[in-house]
Simulated assay, not measured.
Amino acid sequence: MGKNITVLGAGAWGTAFGQVLADAGNTVTMWAKEQQIVEGIRDHHHNAVRLPSVEKLPDNMTATGDRAEAVKNADIVVVAIAAQFARVALVEFKGLIPDHAIVVSLMKGIERGTNKRMDEVVRESLDLPADRFAAISGPNLSKEIADRHPAATVVACTNLDNATKVAEACTTSYFKPFVTTDVIGLEMCGSLKNVTALAVGMARGAGYGENTAAMIETRGLAELTALGVAAGADPKTFFGLAGVGDLIATCGSSLSRNYTFGANLGKGLTVEEATKVSNGVAEGVPTTDAVVALGDQLDVPTPLAYQMSRVLNEGISCSEMLAGLFGHEVTGE
């Protein structure tokens, strides 16, 4: 039997995932602040602002701008808000979400200022126990999923039964979720790969080829794995869908906002210029400095994140970024 599921945030990924949930037989309510988006989904089953490629969203999707109305009957509440605004937005929902509901994060990022993962931000904001929090991450480019292309993802929760409940709620003929208890690993994969995607995109935009891209991706994977393990993650997570899988998709597609943002930097645009032409939030931009700070906190070197931080804050070129990745001494891989 289908569940009542609320999605907080009607951006491209939130809306695409709402469609997955509706296709899986659930009753889906989208919450958004923008009245135009609410009316579009509720009255016309169309999100012309954030996901115009889908001409008609399923009939079992609706929308509201009222927080209490959005979550009052929810069995599952999915959070799809820009990572750096999650804490402020979620505080408004504290006390409104039913005590039995599982809260699921689609967000990927490290909070600036606190260096906290999204599982920590969500649980603190809502005063939520660990067994009622789940995260979803994987190679999930929103437009392809909106077009119902075959895809897979990973659902993480410390309570495997609750992870399975969430996975069952989003299983369709084209969308296959797997489950894990490694919340930390999943969160770290989803956040840190965005920094790597910025760097790969920048290299591509600057005209570099496959060798350079492969170098950045593999060294980025090593960096994010080391950070994750230091934070308590299972290293195997980084070599599955949430790690390597997401890295491949995010670092190889113009549909990735982080890749595209980096490519624009590589072509010579400033951070301000690249931001203006971006369609949506490139989470890797605010996450980069947080990753460097997290590396300092965990005593893990983060040369790629550090060099991308210099790109974003000092305006160094792609060639300077790449030159700074490695020291002069020969080391083991």
Rank of each mutant, 00 (worst) to 15 (best):
R117N: 12
D131M: 08
N4C: 06
A63T: 04
A12W: 05
A263Q: 12
K33F: 12
T237Q: 02
M215H: 08
D182T: 11
G190I: 15
S254D: 13
A203M: 12
T287E: 01
K33R: 15
A70Y: 06
I110C: 14
N159E: 15
A63V: 02
A10T: 15
R123I: 05
I97T: 00
F326Y: 15
G185Q: 09
L269N: 11
R117I: 12
R148I: 02
K176A: 08
V244E: 15
G284Q: 13
D119W: 14
D23H: 11
T153I: 06
P129W: 01
S173W: 05
T302R: 04
G315W: 10
L265A: 03
A146T: 03
R112T: 15
C251T: 15
H328V: 11
S173C: 04
D66T: 06
E314Q: 11
G207T: 11
T237N: 01
A80L: 00
L186D: 09
T181R: 13
T172N: 04
G185T: 10
V28L: 03
I216V: 11
V330F: 15
F178A: 10
Y259R: 06
E111C: 08
G209N: 13
N4E: 14
E217G: 07
L221K: 06
N73I: 00
K165R: 09
I5F: 06
M308C: 11
N258K: 07
V54W: 01
A222Q: 13
A213I: 04
G315F: 06
D127M: 11
L198W: 10
A134Y: 07
G332T: 13
I102F: 07
M1Y: 08
V200L: 08
D127F: 04
E223S: 05
F175N: 02
K165T: 14
K116D: 14
G9R: 01
C189K: 12
G245H: 11
F85Y: 15
T288S: 04
A169W: 02
G95W: 07
G65K: 05
V292Y: 02
A12I: 05
C157D: 10
L57D: 00
Q19K: 15
G201P: 13
G40Q: 01
L312Q: 06
N47T: 03
Y306V: 09
E329Q: 14
C157E: 07
F85N: 11
N73G: 03
G332Q: 09
V38R: 00
S142D: 14
N258W: 09
H44M: 03
D75Y: 02
D59G: 01
A135Q: 10
E314A: 10
D43S: 03
F17G: 00
K72M: 04
H149A: 10
A80N: 01
G284I: 07
A68K: 14
Y208K: 09
E283R: 07
G138E: 12
A134S: 02
V88D: 14
G252R: 05
D127W: 05
D234R: 03
E272A: 00
V311F: 06
D59I: 00
E223M: 09
S53P: 00
G209M: 13
